[in-house]
């Protein structure tokens, strides 16, 4: 079949199939289009964040005098300032989230190294770099679990609700000590949705790592899509993994910096 269409292509008949305007295999192209649709989903969530945030009061005082209140949106570097294993009440604004960002960028680098090794059909190298990527993803998930636990548990002092006079400690979907209710809700939804993507990525990475280790992609008689390389599954899962890193870049800016 491929033979026939190549011959047709040479004669200038382009509508019988067998040629690739995008010079990418079917599977890779579909991964790209899936990522576009997933990018729309995340954009929807982040635009919602922007919309809700700017329809709430902003804090107008100085950073030094900042106190949590239900009346205005909190400053992110006052909310996220705890690190694991540090003494109680130790302030290290954005340090832990910085470490998490570094871990995710690093795991993106090891993923691209695995893809590069795949181009060279170097199974040992692909195994090594995929293992590092899986480890990085798992570390990120662990860090996020800690971050969530700390966010839910809250500070010792808490914040006084001016309407009811009760003290709020920590955060849930109904109220939180850091600011207006949607602040915690958006935190849970957006970082949770991203974390779920990281989790799926780790699971898919483990599957592909298994396939690499049993030598599936080295089998000479393995059927491939037209235009695909032997190790293209590594490249496809790599696209997904980079996308997860990319989303974190935007979540990080929207949630922790602005």
């Amino acid at each position: 079949m491929a033979h026939v269409s190549t011959a047709d292509h040479k004669q200038g008949i382009d509508w019988n199939g067998g040629n690739q305007p995008f010079k990418a295999s079917w599977g890779k192209l579909m991964m790209w289009f899936f990522l576009v649709s997933d990018a729309f989903t995340f954009s929807g969530l982040l635009i919602t964040y922007g919309f809700i945030r700017y329809s709430h009061n902003a804090y107008l005082g100085t950073a030094e005098a900042f106190k949590f209140s239900l009346d205005y949106w909190p400053l992110p570097d006052k909310v996220f300032e705890a690190v694991p294993f540090a003494p109680h009440g130790f302030h290290a604004p954005l340090v832990f989230v910085g470490i998490m960002t570094f871990i995710l960028i690093m795991s993106s680098v090891t993923m691209v190294l695995a893809v590069e090794a795949g181009h060279r059909k170097d199974r040992k190298d692909v195994e090594k770099w995929m293992l590092w990527t899986i480890l990085g993803g798992a570390t990120f998930l662990g860090s996020q679990a800690w971050e969530w636990a700390h966010f839910i548990h809250g500070t010792d002092k808490g914040t006084i609700d001016a309407v009811t006079g009760t003290v709020i400690n920590g955060a849930n979907l109904i109220r939180n000590e850091y600011g207006p209710t949607p602040f915690a809700n958006l935190f849970f939804f957006i970082t949770g949705f991203h974390g779920f993507h990281v989790f799926s990525g780790v699971v898919i990475n483990i599957l592909i790592f298994y396939n690499v280790s049993i030598g599936m992609y080295d089998r000479p008689n393995r059927k491939l899509d037209e235009g695909a390389e032997q190790y293209e599954m590594v490249e496809k899962v790599g696209l997904y993994w980079h996308f997860v890193d990319l989303v974190w870049v935007f979540v990080f800016t929207a949630f922790y910096l602005i």
Partner: peptide, 10 residues
């Protein structure tokens, strides 16, 4: 950052 990740890594 996004341009480098999409352009080079992806």
């Amino acid at each position: 950052k996004a341009a480098y990740i999409i352009g080079e890594f992806m």
